[in-house]
């Protein structure tokens, strides 16, 4: 056996033990590599198709594995990432996605109020439609929230958002 092949085998063995499915992969920081670019920019899926609670709840919601599989039973079923999702679906197991857009504990942010007031998702989550790896590019600073609230004439009372 020549050297490069041996190295490749060893590396793949290492990868299989170091990053078993369900653990965060080194590439994406998520248990399953997920590209918003493929879904949003590539296939034109609306944010609210997956984040179904954005218009009616404080939390926008993470799609269930069943929701993923409603398309992926057929679409790109051979993709290795999709296979990870399919396995989770077969095992009736949720995928433990890691939170990317973080807000402190003392802030109340109702997604539905913003979305229903016509604030585009990309206003707070810029570039997420083009992101291969999900990152939060906009820092959620209070001054930035306040500037928009002032401009739109929305309440800037502390107790509107702080809890």
């Amino acid at each position: 056996m020549n050297r490069p092949i041996l190295l490749a085998v060893l590396l793949s063995l290492f990868a299989a033990t170091a990053f078993p499915p369900g653990e965060a992969s080194a590439l994406s920081g998520q248990p399953v590599p997920f590209s918003h670019k493929t879904h949003v920019a590539g296939n034109g899926i609306d944010c609210r198709f997956c984040h179904i609670y954005a218009t009616r709840s404080a939390s926008a919601g993470i799609p269930s594995v069943a929701k993923c599989m409603s398309c992926h039973r057929v679409v790109a079923a051979g993709n290795p990432s999709v296979k990870l999702v399919a396995r989770a679906a077969d095992e009736k197991r949720a995928i433990a996605w890691n939170r990317v857009a973080k807000l402190p504990d003392h802030v109340y942010f109702p997604h539905h109020k913003m979305v229903n007031a016509g604030v585009p998702c990309l206003f707070c989550h810029p570039g997420v439609d083009q992101a291969v790896e999900t990152v939060q590019k906009r820092a959620f600073t209070m001054g930035w929230c306040m500037a928009c609230h002032r401009q739109r004439g929305v309440s800037i009372d502390c107790w509107t958002c702080h809890k």
């Binding site: 003392h106 309440s155 009372d157 502390c158 107790w159 702080h162």
Partner: peptide, 14 residues
């Protein structure tokens, strides 16, 4: 601690 528009005596922990 301050008074808000709805006559509540509000407390900002931070």
């Amino acid at each position: 601690t301050y008074h808000n528009e709805e006559n509540l005596n509000a407390m900002v922990y931070n």
